[in-house]
Design a protein around this nucleic acid. Structure first.
Length: 447
RNA sequence: GUGGGUGUAGCUCAGCUGGUAGAGCAUCGGCUUGUGGUGCCGAGGGUCGCGGGUUCAAGCCCCGUCACUCACCCCA
């Protein structure tokens, strides 16, 4: 052991940064609950077979092992969850008899992935997830509702603008099948790389890997290029001349989703149909979401979709739809670039100054009175010169310093940002609401 | 797992063809007998990532190793 160094992929924040993260989490939680979603926390570990069964994603899971195990096999068969949806499916099956459906739940929890870290990709991170789970069936309105909740959640946060791209798996699967592709799954996978390898790269791979001819490839690329903020995109899809029942179904759903989501659009949150996104080869069966935030680059910060058969006990299936927001993925890059921070490093709104050590009981009394009314307060650690005590507050971002009065002199409180100081009564004075808690502070970003 | 880049003070970094370690910012103290931020003066702070090798002498050259970082793979 030589020196303590940061551990790659396991971000840690400074106090003010954590305050900003907490403010974000509090805001998300408030929005989710405002929409009637109940908090539901699942354990950090799942049996490996549970984790690996959904989609053939192999490795990248952190496995639990007991160091003290003396007998050869130390494998517990448990791994840390890598998202919140797979544990939810397991939880729903396990507790199906005790739950009310449709189940509306949210979770804000840590997840772990063993992959190589990069900017915006971490090994330990926090996700905020909302889901609606039905029993045997789930109305399409649920797809619209999770969109609405995420729109509300993101719109009220001071973050760079987010665009939520929506597509539908039935639509693209039906389209590819309808144009004669033998293996639509491969086509989906290849087209999903459009951003990375470009149209020419996709063209080559569609021919070699999916066995499509030029005409078919043209149709695939044409579909992938369709986007739209209103339902007019549907005409462009039909104009391509492909037909298939699944395509019709998916197109109808996507049109509904876009039409319903249009009113949620704000300056900070746009919704757009984008027929290229597919979200991997996993359990999604209908609507798929991908939210992108424009900062330095254009990064995916939320994802989700409809999964009709993720949870099933053989007799009953529990279809669901959900969206996850990558809290760490949103915040860590912004914080790291100094674009976002908390307004202070402590919860305290007020520092009670200490004229002399003898005044400590009196200062404590002032603090008690303020706390009683919900105003976070701390007492200066030592009776230093007032200048030092003000500096103590300033360094931490505490906006107010309280000066206990003396015989014939009233208490006073000073806003150290403006310098304004007024006489005040600890049982009556109250700071503006905005000063009660640490705020999220953002520096110039591209909106 | 593959490939590139980088490791020197708390932070950002300089350090010449090898000659015994520096700046700015930050911190602490003083000017300032209790109301801060600016200014001036001063101080503290370093296993030069780690291990080995070459050399009279290594932050610098060589080998190894670890960590961080960017990209690829992957992205549930």
């Amino acid at each position: 052991m030589s020196r303590i160094t940061p551990l790659s992929g396991f971000p840690e924040f400074l106090p003010s940064q954590r305050a900003a993260e907490l403010a974000v989490i509090d805001s998300l939680r408030e929005t989710f609950e405002l929409h009637g979603f109940a908090s539901l926390e699942t354990r950090a570990v799942e049996p490996m077979e549970q984790l690996l069964s959904k989609g053939e994603t192999s490795k990248e899971v952190y496995v639990l092992r007991r160091l003290q195990e003396t007998q050869g096999d130390t494998d517990t068969g448990l791994g840390l969850h890598f998202d919140l949806t797979v544990p939810l499916a397991r939880y729903v099956l396990e507790n199906a008899g005790k739950l009310e459906f449709p189940l509306r739940r949210y979770a804000i929890q840590r997840c772990w992935r063993g992959e190589r870290p990069q900017e915006g990709r971490y090994r330990e991170f926090t996700q905020a997830d909302i889901d609606i789970i039905g029993r045997d069936e789930l109305s399409f309105d649920a797809d619209v509702e999770v969109t609405e909740v995420m729109a509300a959640a993101l719109s009220r946060l001071p973050l760079p603008a987010v665009t939520l791209q929506i597509n539908n798996r039935k639509l693209i699967e039906g389209f590819y099948t309808g144009l004669g592709a033998q293996d639509p799954a491969t086509v989906i996978r290849v087209v999903d790389k459009l951003d990375k390898v470009g149209p020419d790269g996709v063209r080559v791979q569609l021919r070699t890997e999916a066995g499509l001819d030029d005409a078919q490839v043209d149709l695939c690329l044409a579909l992938a290029q369709i986007t739209g903020t209103d339902v007019s995109f549907a005409g462009e899809v039909r104009a391509l001349g492909v037909s298939h029942p699944l395509l019709d179904e998916g197109l109808r759903d996507l049109v509904r989703a876009i039409a319903a989501a249009a009113p949620f659009a704000t300056e900070r949150f746009r919704v757009v149909a984008d027929l290229r996104i597919a979200r991997g080869l996993d359990y999604y069966t209908g609507t798929v979401f991908e939210g992108r935030m424009k900062t330095h680059g254009d990064i995916a910060i939320c994802a989700g979709g409809r999964y009709d058969a993720l949870a099933s006990d053989g007799r009953i299936t529990y279809p669901g739809v959900g969206i996850s927001l990558g809290v760490t993925r949103v915040l860590a890059p912004l914080i790291g670039r100094g674009l976002l921070d908390g307004s202070r490093s402590v919860p305290s709104a007020v520092l009670v100054a200490l004229p002399t050590e003898e005044d400590r009981p009196r200062a404590r009394e002032v603090a008690r009175a303020l706390r009683e009314r919900g105003i976070a307060t701390e007492v200066a650690p030592i009776a230093a010169k007032f200048g030092r005590q003000i500096r103590h507050a300033d360094r931490r971002g505490i906006p107010y310093v309280w000066f206990p009065g003396g015989p014939g002199r009233a208490d006073s409180v000073k806003d150290i940002r403006s310098g304004e100081q007024v006489d005040a009564d600890p049982d009556a004075w109250r700071p503006p609401t905005a000063d009660l808690r640490p705020q999220i502070v953002t520096k110039e970003t591209h909106p």
